[in-house]
Design a protein around this nucleic acid. Structure first.
Length: 285
DNA sequence: GTACTTGTTAAACT
DNA sequence: TAGTTTAACAAGTA
């Protein structure tokens, strides 16, 4: 499930592959992926990609038309995979488009670039999207995302302002993208473990010391996961079609019933904020 | 067939 | 009204 580290992995790779490439042809299945824009392909054909930015889990591709942007969100099962002119995924020499069976039945959009390379958008569950937007629309969409834990603006004071006086669980608040952008189910659980705080604690009950630990943990878990290229359980692949490796460093997520790596506890799974939630009942308070 | 999975939001509650 | 909770979306797995 792509969260900030996964999306950042894709963004940094695509930036290397796509900048300066001209879109010659777009093939797409009309539907929720591209919204109700029937001219999706026609509008963006002929444009050059000039940059790729990320706000939380939202990707923004800028073009040589300063009022045309392409917004992308992978939601749960979205993938953006680049294939070079020789049919090799990520421009490498191991995985080919044929190996990855691209395009396949979950490929909803294919971009064909002037140099013969391609970009595929796959999404099994069709929650993700690729939409064309004006500058104004793009900025509106970007403004839905708050400060990222890896930003220098994310500190004790900011997290305290988000949590203070709130009667809901800290997990519920950490998942709100408008407040804190980038954490999803996996990294919220991992950050809470790192800070030794139960995800189901009421936000306003945290001490200053605990908020400091939690802020540091949110930042660290994302930084480490970016380094590892994200986490892959089932669906996530980077722009080269490869999985992420942070799964090796997970402490609690999907580890219910297994021993805690920090104490003698057994990892437990409960439901918090409507989501499966993993923690150690012995060393998280 | 049923329950469960999740990122985000819209609707329903309090 | 604001804060909070729940349901919904899709399609696959157990």
């Amino acid at each position: 499930m792509p969260e900030l580290p996964e999306v950042e992995t894709v963004r940094s790779q695509l930036q290397k592959f796509l900048i300066g490439k001209k879109i010659n042809l777009v093939k797409f299945t009309p539907g929720r992926i591209t919204g109700d824009n029937k001219n999706f392909g026609k509008i963006i054909q002929g444009r050059k990609i000039t940059g790729i930015d990320r706000h939380g889990k939202l990707l923004t591709f800028s073009t040589d038309d300063t009022d045309m942007f392409l917004l992308g969100h992978l939601k749960m099962t979205g993938q953006l995979i680049f294939v070079d002119k020789n049919g090799m995924a990520g421009g490498g020499h191991t995985l080919s488009a044929k190996d990855l069976d691209l395009p396949h039945k979950h490929t909803h959009v294919s971009f064909h670039f002037a140099d013969g390379s391609k970009l595929y958008f796959n999404d099994m569950r069709k929650f993700g999207f690729l939409r064309i937007a004006t500058k104004k629309e793009a900025e509106e969409e970007q403004s839905k995302y708050g400060i990222e834990p890896i930003s220098k603006d994310f500190n004790f004071e900011y997290l305290k302002s988000v949590l203070s006086g709130r009667k809901t669980t800290i997990k519920g608040l950490l998942l709100q993208q408008k407040q804190i952008a980038g954490l999803g189910n996996i990294y919220v659980d991992e950050a809470c473990f790192m800070a030794a705080i139960r995800p189901d604690r009421i936000a306003s009950s945290l001490s200053d010391q605990e908020i400091k630990l939690l802020a540091k943990a949110c930042r660290r878990v994302l930084q480490q996961a970016i380094k590892a290229g994200g986490t892959t359980f089932y669906d996530f692949t980077n722009a080269k079609g490869e999985p992420g490796h942070y799964i090796r460093q997970l402490n609690v997520f999907q580890k219910q019933g297994q021993p805690c790596g920090r104490c003698d506890g057994i990892i437990k799974k409960i439901k918090v904020a409507g989501r499966g939630t993993h923690f150690c009942p012995v060393c998280q308070f």
